[in-house]
Design a protein around this nucleic acid. Structure first.
Lengths: 255, 255
DNA sequence: CTTGAACTTCGTATGTCATACGGAGATGAT
DNA sequence: ATCATCTCCGTATGACATACGAAGTTCAAG
């Protein structure tokens, strides 16, 4: 089966930079990379909804339809943006302590989502086979190869880690986004949220939630309830669970 | 501060069903619930992108702009849809084994995302304070109260669990969606994915990923690589980690 | 009983979006 | 020198959310 028969493969080849050859016509005035970079600038500055083909073309000083010579549709452009952003994440170098490497990998990914919140809004159809996504996965697997886990379990673990990070980033992004976008001060936002919580969190119906949120708000330096939200804690518990499992299986991991 | 001063609170009150009272004008011909239900039907049948104000109004036999008497904007409608969907998830009844209850809670949530894939595409701005979301959270906390964890740790744990489920659902939804939407047979889709993997997964650059995927595909009954994807495994490891932590802290949990 | 404030309904209009289509001109293989 | 193949892009289409304001409806107050 060649790419011609399967539109998915066209997109895949584009993401992998395998553009077949341009012989006949005039030289293109743009490159895919430049287009993708400018699109990312736009998304960073004003959010994903600001990335329209028209605005992007204006920034690039070309007509709107010119973009369609480089990209079959907008969804492909978004896939390119996503993988380019993922490529930005510096992979932590291999260290002997796989727990530490996993933790760092997770934090790098979270930081990436914080830097490029639009990346979480991009829905990929089909399996995640973009180059930088695969590189990230390979790096996780490399760290996990020190645990003595089986190959299938390593894959399950690596994917689970990315699930956790994506979910955490996505759940908290709305909160952080509001702080970035809104014209209000952080104090004001905090105040409004506290008001909203007060209005809604009936102690009779939600006793545990109320207590937990109160405890959480007290422990936070700025009194902000929605700051940390369990990322570090949850990540450490997950890694604990992996370590325990690997050890019980008689794996080669020490400590 | 009253709702009038803070547009967020208007939306919140709407989600909580606190509509102030309608005295003067003619009786409304619709209800928020009916609107929301029909919107959900539409989204279930044809995806979130099929839910436009125009189509929704047509289904309800009213003019497009009529909807705006019930809802300030589409984002609010989406928030209503989301919380109504969450309300559909039957909360597992409290059992003495908190691990089992947690596992069931996670599975219920995953099932919900599978049944209503559009729910994952809805971005909420601001904290998750919708009634059914809070009920779900309270139920998680109730299960966790048997662990002996501190209140802040309970909240961190509960949130982390939802992070994991959301991430897992979101990552895999693109794959399942393709199988639902596409006109191709599952066989054909599988074949194309295998072809894509073959094309892209250079063994020299991605030795571990290649091995892991091969092992994963072999272990799966239908030979499908992208079927389970580590949800159950990752969930169990996470719960293991929580249990270990609670026990080490000298909590009241027994085994 | 009348009046008018407050409400629902919704046609029309505005400005946005992705992208289909086709023409004009440039380039290089033959 | 020809012409297939490519780039560039103006125009057009049909979607979209929603602002605005007019018309009709209901009930409370005078």
């Amino acid at each position: 089966m060649t790419a011609r028969d399967n539109p998915d493969l066209v997109r895949l080849d584009l993401i992998w930079g395998r553009t077949p050859r341009r012989a006949r016509g005039p030289r293109p005035s743009l490159t895919l990379e430049r287009i993708t970079d400018v699109a990312i600038e736009l998304a960073d500055a004003s959010g994903l909804e600001a990335v329209s083909m028209k605005r992007l073309a204006e920034r690039l000083q070309v007509g709107t339809m010119t973009l369609y010579t480089y990209v079959p549709d907008k969804a492909t452009l978004l896939a390119l943006m996503l993988d380019r952003a993922v490529g930005e994440a510096a992979l932590p170098e291999a260290v002997e302590d796989w727990r530490e490497q996993l933790r760092q990998s997770a934090e790098v990914l979270l930081a990436l989502y914080r830097r490029h919140p639009w990346a979480m809004q991009i829905d990929i159809e089909g399996p995640p086979l973009a180059p930088n996504q695969l590189r990230y996965l390979e790096s996780l697997l490399q760290a996990l190869s020190k645990t003595g886990l089986g190959r299938k379990e390593m894959l399950d673990t690596a994917l689970s880690l990315t699930y956790f990070v994506l979910g955490a980033a996505k759940t908290t992004s709305g909160l952080l986004d509001a702080e970035r976008t809104s014209s209000l001060s952080h104090e004001e936002i905090r105040e409004r949220r506290a008001e909203a919580v007060r209005r809604v969190l009936d102690p009779a119906e939600f006793p545990l939630a109320r207590e937990a949120m109160a405890a959480s708000a007290d422990g936070s330096p700025s009194g902000g309830l929605w700051d940390s939200l369990g990322f570090a804690f949850g990540l450490d518990r997950f890694i604990d669970g992996i370590a325990a499992y690997a050890e019980a299986r008689g794996g080669g991991a020490k400590a």
